[in-house]
Amino acid sequence: MSPDPLSRLASLEGVPSAYAAARDGIDALLRDRGLRRTSPETTAESLLLGAHASGVLEGSVSTLEEVRSGSCDEVAQDAVRVSTELLGLAPTLSRTPLQALARIHVLAAADLPEPQRGRPRDASAAQRLRGVGELLTGSADVPALLVAAVVHAELATAAAFASHNGIVARAAERLVLVARGVDEKSLTVPEAGHLALRPAYESNLRGYAEGGAAGVHAWLLYAAEAYAAGAEASPVRRAG
């Protein structure tokens, strides 16, 4: 998908109001309950919650307590490994997004043979990744939340890497929110929003891949709801 369609997507029925409401909710959380009391520990907790949720969506059966203690299964360990380096990739995502996406996959897929880590599966997959890179270097006038939603869906449905595409997609989504100033301290937990809405998450991803324009529209409306749920899952709310 080239950058041009995003302006059209941003004007689809219900999308402007849904994304404005989601952004307002995130801004209210960060302004009213977050900024005066946030700490690196709060960000670390948000990343841990996100790693657990992303791992579960990828097939992990580990509990949050097991993830916290380091006794989790391999899939959860993969998601945690991504989370530990993710925020440092925000400048790279803005400048050279394909490099950032490759690094996320390298972190997630540490057990794969080296030639399969951080590289697209084939020429078609490389083309899809280039399209995602174009989205990430353009679309300045499109709401950042919408860019994050499309990047997530493109990465998840293209399955451009040999494995861990869901973990990469959800990590990239969080990173877009950081890099584009929606949630610079990464205090919301979009992965937990998707987990809370798991049946809708999975069905709308299928719709995005297979349902044409209607499927894309439905995904965008779903994603706005998921971002609101991700704000509700923020550790800032518990601190408050």
Rank of each mutant, 00 (worst) to 15 (best):
residue 95 R to A: 14
residue 197 L to I: 09
residue 235 P to E: 03
residue 103 R to C: 01
residue 200 A to G: 07
residue 223 A to E: 10
residue 199 P to S: 09
residue 28 A to H: 15
residue 86 L to N: 00
residue 10 A to I: 03
residue 84 T to H: 10
residue 119 R to F: 11
residue 30 L to Q: 07
residue 149 A to L: 03
residue 220 L to N: 02
residue 217 H to V: 08
residue 11 S to I: 10
residue 2 S to L: 13
residue 38 T to N: 13
residue 49 L to T: 02
residue 181 G to H: 05
residue 75 V to S: 00
residue 160 A to F: 08
residue 78 D to F: 00
residue 41 E to D: 12
residue 218 A to Y: 07
residue 27 D to G: 08
residue 157 T to R: 09
residue 127 Q to A: 15
residue 165 N to I: 02
residue 222 Y to H: 13
residue 110 A to T: 07
residue 6 L to Q: 07
residue 148 A to P: 05
residue 224 A to H: 02
residue 192 A to P: 11
residue 170 R to A: 09
residue 175 L to H: 03
residue 137 T to R: 13
residue 112 L to K: 05
residue 53 A to I: 01
residue 24 D to F: 13
residue 14 G to P: 08
residue 168 V to D: 06
residue 116 Q to H: 12
residue 26 I to G: 01
residue 143 P to Y: 04
residue 21 A to H: 13
residue 84 T to G: 06
residue 236 V to W: 00
residue 91 P to C: 05
residue 135 L to G: 07
residue 54 S to H: 07
residue 175 L to G: 04
residue 199 P to Q: 06
residue 18 A to D: 09
residue 201 Y to T: 01
residue 207 G to H: 00
residue 110 A to H: 14
residue 4 D to S: 12
residue 82 V to C: 09
residue 30 L to E: 06
residue 82 V to W: 03
residue 122 D to V: 02
residue 135 L to H: 05
residue 178 V to F: 05
residue 85 E to F: 11
residue 210 E to Q: 14
residue 32 D to L: 12
residue 65 E to P: 09
residue 236 V to T: 09
residue 12 L to T: 08
residue 186 S to W: 08
residue 215 G to E: 07
residue 142 V to N: 01
residue 71 S to F: 13
residue 197 L to S: 13
residue 177 L to D: 01
residue 118 G to F: 10
residue 163 S to N: 15
residue 1 M to T: 11
residue 32 D to E: 14
residue 236 V to D: 01
residue 55 G to M: 05
residue 5 P to G: 04
residue 52 H to N: 11
residue 77 Q to N: 13
residue 29 L to D: 04
residue 99 Q to W: 04
residue 220 L to D: 01
residue 115 P to K: 10
residue 190 P to S: 04
residue 13 E to K: 13
residue 201 Y to N: 04
residue 122 D to P: 01
residue 59 G to P: 02
residue 184 E to D: 09
residue 7 S to A: 14
residue 152 H to T: 02
